[in-house]
């Protein structure tokens, strides 16, 4: 194979891999069950619903990782948002209906800026490494979530919320539409605005960004606030889907969301990555998780498979730099 083909494969391996698993599952469905995987609307909807929350967390994470950071607190920020959203709606009179949901949305959005603000301040002003700062926030958000919920889940009874969580528009579940909306916005910001450009510059060469007059401290602060906000949206979606707020809502998603970003082609060292990559990454993980249930093997295999895919993603990222002819220290 020539280097051009190799380059193409290394750039699009995640697409190829996704298509490969889809073909495999479709083949399995036809041969074993005599049915279909891809053309089954239930399957498609389930996979997309599976994808929505980790994808939303992954969107914020994509920005942070491109800038050369990481946010470990998002999973419990999501749980915290889920609990706050549920608690606010529950505390309001049920006859308020959709107004209660809107108030809950507003309050949750505002509250979610706090963990992001603290993360961003720790990292940008106090020079705490992102890994440690957000690990601390992971604990704080987790504890605050459980304390707010008093260690339980917070059930809510609101018809409008129930509709948001389970309703469909043109056959597409509303949480999926919300995720698509944020994907488009995030793609626009990252690719077409100065904010996105500065995020890449920050991950590529922090000094260059500073000397170009970019307000790097403010930018980092905004990045972590954006990340917490995205986690907040994911948390509210959770509450809507299950009509309950749960502090542990995001727990299994922390690594899934980070994995989605890396499987999507972002570099661990910052400076590269794309929203569409994260979408593919999140889809791959969701398809693997759903597919393993679908072909009826022990669900624990999903952890093994997703783990292997993450490692492959990093290896591909490393070899990609070599293929691109960038200088390496070897």
């Amino acid at each position: 194979m020539n280097s051009k083909t190799l380059k193409l494969i290394s750039n699009f391996w995640n697409w190829i891999f996704l298509i490969f698993i889809l073909i495999f599952l479709e083949g399995w469905a036809r041969i074993v069950y005599g049915s279909t995987f891809l053309l089954n609307p239930f399957v498609l909807q389930s996979v997309l619903l599976f994808t929505a929350a980790p994808l939303l967390i992954g969107i914020g994470q994509t920005f942070v990782i491109i800038s050369g950071g990481i946010d470990l607190s998002v999973a419990f920020a999501m749980g915290l948002a889920s609990v706050i959203f549920a608690t606010v709606i529950k505390s309001l009179a049920p006859e308020l209906g959709y107004i209660a949901v809107l108030i809950g949305f507003g309050v949750t959005c505002l509250v979610m800026l706090i963990p992001g603000f603290i993360n961003g301040t720790l990292i940008s002003r106090l020079n705490v490494p992102p890994f440690i700062g957000t690990l601390g926030m992971y604990g704080v958000a987790r504890g605050t979530g459980y304390l707010t919920a008093d260690g339980m889940t917070v059930p809510v009874n609101n018809d409008f919320l129930f509709y948001l969580g389970t309703g469909k528009i043109f056959g597409i579940p509303i949480p999926v539409l919300v995720a698509i909306f944020f994907v488009i916005i995030a793609h626009y910001i990252l690719t077409y605005t100065k904010f996105g450009q500065y995020t890449y510059a920050l991950g590529g060469n922090r000094q260059a960004a500073i000397r170009s007059g970019i307000n790097v401290k403010r930018h980092i602060l905004l990045l972590y606030m954006l990340c917490a906000f995205c986690a907040g949206i994911a948390g509210m979606i959770y509450t809507a889907r299950f009509s309950a707020g749960a502090p542990q809502a995001g727990e299994p998603l922390m690594l899934d969301a980070i994995a989605a970003v890396f499987i999507g082609g972002a570099s661990f060292f910052g400076g590269s990555g794309k929203i569409i990559g994260t979408v593919i990454g999140a889809l791959i993980i969701a398809v693997i998780q759903f597919g393993i249930v679908f072909i009826d093997i022990k669900p624990f295999w999903q952890f093994v498979v997703v783990g292997i895919v993450i490692i492959v993603a990093v290896i591909v990222d490393q070899s990609k730099n070599k293929l691109k002819g960038e200088r390496t220290d070897e």
Binding site: Q197, A201, G204, N205, Q207, A208, A209, R211
Partner: peptide
């Protein structure tokens, strides 16, 4: 001395960095 270029961005993006 170290040029302060963002190596992951292209020529135009570097020339205009901060003033796009």
């Amino acid at each position: 001395q170290d040029l302060a270029l963002a190596d992951n961005l292209n020529v135009g993006a570097n020339i205009f960095l901060g003033r796009e």
